[in-house]
Amino acid sequence: MYFLFKVGGGQEQHRLIKDMWNLGHIILFMLLSIIILNMKPLYNKSLIFKFFIITLVSLILGPATEAIQLLVRREFSIHDIANDFIGAYLGLLIYIISNKTKTTTTRFGAGMLALFLLSIGFRDIAPTIVDEIAIYDSFPVLAGFESDAEINRWELVNVRTVRDEQHPISGSHSLKAEYLPATYSSLSLLHMKSDWRGHEQLLFSIYSVNQQNIPFEIKVHDQYHSRTGGGYGDRFNKSIILKQGWNFINIPLDPNRCIS
């Protein structure tokens, strides 16, 4: 229960950790299902009746756990409820597989269904693992936009984005960003290799289609900054003017050369 209501709720947690903690729903309901199925009142009941009981319990407890999480500032998630059902049915399939009174064919079929449900349960964590490997393989390039998966590394606030082939600076793609009218619009790279020691500068390029000069604010900060209130003086800040066409920005990583 601790996994559901406490640990995974912090926004500062790494996305891979969040995905792993979301598996807690599957594990919890799988164990709960196995416990229920091994209760004496269900010993002589049919498999269909046991399936009905497990479904009913999931229908009640799944939304209930999500409602309780609202009390600890977690979001109500249909995704988590789906994981609850996956875990409950996995428990039922494990119960069938471990029941030696069932035929070999029945137990084999249950095993295949269990593998299928596991593949659904890992539907989020597997792409995250693949993208995390890609992040380290492509470093020191932080963003090349050569795959759709890279878009998920960014947080968008009042911004629409799409991978584009019209203005690549390297490779075959760039990121086309449309800033929508709002008080604050931002495009933030959240998922990257965080240790930049040994590198001298941060380089990136922006192609502006606007004929007028556009003011642009660059901010660089760490997780500690987010956890301690996000003060202006606790991050790197730089204001630049984007001119029409290509703009090449060079930010020294040496704090003695950086100008905030």
Rank of each mutant, 00 (worst) to 15 (best):
T104K: 13
R160L: 14
V72H: 10
H225D: 04
F145L: 01
K238D: 05
N44A: 08
G233D: 10
S58M: 02
L115Y: 11
G111V: 06
G171A: 07
Y184S: 11
I17V: 14
F85T: 08
G10W: 11
L180I: 11
Y89P: 00
E75M: 08
L4M: 06
F139N: 07
I133M: 09
W21A: 07
L190Q: 10
N213G: 06
M20Y: 14
E165Q: 12
I214A: 03
D164A: 11
Q223I: 06
F204C: 03
E150G: 00
V130I: 15
A114N: 02
T161E: 09
S172A: 13
F49Y: 12
G87K: 00
S208T: 08
I129H: 03
Y2A: 14
K50W: 00
I81R: 08
T183Y: 15
I120G: 05
S170R: 15
D124P: 06
T55E: 06
E12F: 12
I27M: 08
T103G: 07
I259T: 15
L190S: 06
A110R: 03
V72K: 11
Q211H: 14
Y136G: 12
D164K: 08
A64S: 14
L61W: 08
I60V: 15
L117D: 00
S185C: 04
E155M: 12
D254T: 11
F248P: 05
S58I: 01
F122H: 04
T105P: 05
T65F: 04
M192K: 06
Y184R: 13
Y89E: 01
Y232Q: 08
M112Q: 10
A134V: 10
E132W: 09
I68Q: 04
K193D: 10
G111R: 04
T228G: 06
I240G: 01
D19I: 01
Y89M: 05
F51M: 14
N158R: 02
F116T: 08
G171Q: 07
Q211E: 13
T104R: 13
A64T: 15
V157P: 04
S260E: 08
G62Q: 01
K102F: 06
P140L: 05
K45Q: 14
A182I: 09
I206R: 01
D195H: 05
Y136W: 11
L187Q: 10
N38E: 11
F52I: 13
G24E: 01
L32G: 09
I125P: 00
E200Y: 07
S174P: 00
V209F: 12
L115S: 09
N213L: 10
K193H: 08
L203G: 05
M1P: 10
I135C: 04
K40M: 11
P215Q: 06
F216L: 13
E165H: 12
D84I: 05
T65R: 01
G233L: 12
L90K: 01
Y89R: 02
